[in-house]
Design a protein around this nucleic acid. Structure first.
Length: 109
DNA sequence: TAGTTGACTCTAG
DNA sequence: GCTAGAGCCAACT
């Protein structure tokens, strides 16, 4: 299980997402150098179930939609978490997504 | 071993 | 403006 280099990178980026901010799979994928590997970010999130330090709820698709909300055990768990952190979610969509959007390339660089 | 799937994104029609 | 198809990589069956 030491072959999670790509996953580890994803976790590292997601872990650095500040509270009240969200990012997208493609953004992380591109930041890692694989813009077309956005799916892999999703897979990384799928494996992040054993990583309580990885706020997967702060990672959404490029539309700001909670695509993976269903994978949190409850279809509203992701929304509840985001709203609890100050992110307004409406109908599985992040309100002012552009305002709460967090770009690793801008924050880390 | 090989085939299919998947929490995405982009380009083309 | 919306719908459809293609692409990437790893895990699961």
């Amino acid at each position: 299980m030491e072959s999670k280099n790509f996953f580890n990178d994803v976790y590292d980026v997601v872990r650095q997402i500040p509270v009240g901010r969200v990012t997208s799979y493609g953004t992380i994928a591109r930041f890692l150098g694989s813009a077309l590997s956005a799916r892999m970010v999703g897979w990384a999130m799928n494996a992040c179930h054993g990583m309580p330090d990885v706020p997967a709820h702060r990672v959404v698709n490029r539309n700001g939609v909670l695509s993976g909300k269903h994978f949190f055990g409850s279809p509203t768990a992701m929304q509840e978490l985001l709203e609890k952190e100050g992110v307004t979610v409406k109908n599985d969509n992040i309100v002012d997504f552009k305002n709460v959007f967090w770009d690793p390339a801008t924050a880390l660089l």
